[in-house]
Nucleic acid binder design. Structure first.
Length: 124
RNA sequence: CGAGUGAGCCAUCUUGUCGCUCCGGUUUUUGCCGGUGAGGAAAGUCCGGACACCACAGAGCAGUAUAGCGGAUAACGUCCGCCCACCGUGAGGUGAGGACUAGUGGCACAGAAACCAGGUACAGUUCGGCUGUAGUGAAAAGGCUAAACUCUAUACGGUGCAAUGCCAAGUAAACCCGCGUUAUCAGGCUUGCUCGGCCGAGCGGGAGGGUAGGCAGCUAAAGAUAAUUGGUAACAAUUAUCUCAGAUAAAUGACAAGACACGACAGAAUCCGGCUUACAGGCUCACUCGAUUU
RNA sequence: GACCCGGUAGCUCAGUAGGUAGAGCAUCUCCCUUUUAAGGAGAGGGUCCUGAGUUCGAGCCUCAGCCGGGUCA
């Protein structure tokens, strides 16, 4: 795995509303509190193995500072683990935070690792 | 030294590795190099502007806001100075601080009686329901109440960057019902109403279809810092230096090491000036009271 | 982001010149009935979202905050 650059540029971020709607309509999900991953294999023009986005509901986390903090932790955690995820084809990913409090980085990292392993089992 | 008052400022820092936004350069292949990157409240959206658009905004009414006097300002409900009232030993603090001698209304309970009056008990009387006292109450004939209507003075066109302009893509110039078509005529604008003015060949409703991209607006400005001058002050003028976020499912994070005061409230979304609310702790200056020493 | 509404009993809502907080449903008790439902009689239940201010006195007027909802591309 040497030589891999752990980057997460803008082109790998899911932005288009049409794709997000499709993801919610027919995507599957895996949960590991306080995280939930919604995913859907799909083809799209962007040159990236996946399109990913992170979401923290305002109903659960009231303060904008805390929502930003959680999204940053999730983004950082996914950035470092993106090559552990073995996907046979292009896939849409949405990470949703379902907890009620601000967690620390280690919990996010471990739970994300759990979900990623779960996905890999399904494809092998 | 202790207690306190007022004004202003700061908001963990340093280094390394990996990563993100925007800008510039390099390179021609999505890399590399350099720079850049949240707040004093970015918040609440409570005021005031700038800016943009609306068949240029006219008159009257209504409505809303403000309320000692003077000044500052682009403007303000903000700020500064002075006067007055109240609070504090004091430094100081607080104040919607015009008018119930224009009119209308309200004053529960208690009380004989509560706002065109009327008249309880007792006493005194010049016998005139005249005077005093008692009693209820916030208030008893003289008042209180305008954060009651109202009056006076002043100000105010409406909508807001999801405004607005342009580009690209796509769809349905179709269907049903009603009204109207060269007119003292449907309907619309003038943003609550009336008058007046203007637009006008289509308009209103039902059911249904399509779009959810990009660029401009978008950050160099009532700008920041310093000095000097004018002014009691708010503030203004001049000179010098500097360029300081512009994202768009939305950029500031992770890890490691070190330091100490062991880190509060909290995240820009068109931009400024205020107000209000949240907030660990620290610093500076001026002043007051008390005690002690000399 | 900008601009608007609302908060009163367990639920749905009334509440105007500021003066003792009400209705319907629900709950509980009793009556009626073989029993239940319906009907009748009665009872309990309130920080009027929170905190200040004006007033002799605020659900109501003023200011600040909290929570919930809506409109606009």
């Amino acid at each position: 795995m040497t030589g891999l650059r752990y980057k997460l540029p803008r082109k790998s971020i899911l932005k288009r509303k049409q794709l997000i709607d499709a993801l919610f309509q027919s995507g599957r999900s895996i949960a590991a509190y306080p995280l939930r991953l919604v995913y859907l294999p799909m083809s799209y023009p962007e040159d990236s193995r996946f399109l990913v986005t992170f979401s923290v509901p305002k109903k659960k986390i009231k303060k904008a500072v805390h929502r930003n903090r959680i999204k940053r932790l999730m983004r950082e955690s996914f950035r470092l683990q993106q090559y552990d995820l073995n996907l046979p084809q292009k896939t849409l990913l949405m990470w949703i935070f379902t907890g009620n409090d601000v967690p620390n980085y280690e919990i996010i990292y471990q739970k994300m690792n759990l979900i990623i392993n779960e996905i890999n089992k399904k494809y092998h």
